[in-house]
Amino acid sequence: MKKVYATASEALEGLLHDGMFIAAGGFGLCGIPELLIAAIRDAGTKDLTVASNNCGVDDFGLGILLQTRQIKKMISSYVGENAEFMRQYLSGELELEFNPQGTLAERMRAGGCGIPGFYTKTGVGTVIAEGKEVKTFDGEDYILERGIVADLSIVKAWKADDTGNLVFRKTARNFNPPAAMCGKVCVAEVEEIVPRGSLDPDMIHLPGIYVHRIVQGQHEKRIEQRTTRKKETA
């Protein structure tokens, strides 16, 4: 069972095909699989459907796959901060399926857990409910949402061991665990691969059963909105 690969491109070898469905972790530019995204750009795989909360910015994250027109459809909750996204969407070049953020996260989690659908209050009475089954439980309406199973998941973690156990750091965890769970195959990029036995088994965020391939690399980790406060001088 060899899970560790030398480069992002090698880690994706044999997994990419045109028209495939990819689930990606990350929130904004935080915790995004930036190396795997770049490797998909280099591979030129096209007509992709990508489930990801956001679509990066124009020149970073999933935004670079928009520049190369490799994405056919996005499933996202928020696509601001990306002018090229807007342009392609408004001109009809790009399909977009808006999912409420929690619905998207739960669709991924459910798909990974063998749950094909679930009922939620989120979106009842809005455009999100159009065409979806409504069921009443205890006097309240809920809509049916489907679990997501992706051909491939791409995620980013802080540390991994060579069996694929993952540890995330701070809010960079976000969509990465549910995205990882919903893929038929999951490739994780990490900042550090540590020796087997050095991760505390009680502190594993995502067990290696969900992670099929791992690659270590250098991450730019760009900040989208740099907000600070001044130190009060005594």
């Binding site: 909750s77 696509v79 619905t103």
Partner: peptide
């Protein structure tokens, strides 16, 4: 400009 609902629909429902 359509940016998306983010988590707002989940929040108000829950």
């Amino acid at each position: 400009l359509v940016k998306g609902m983010g988590g707002a629909m989940d929040l108000v429902a829950g």
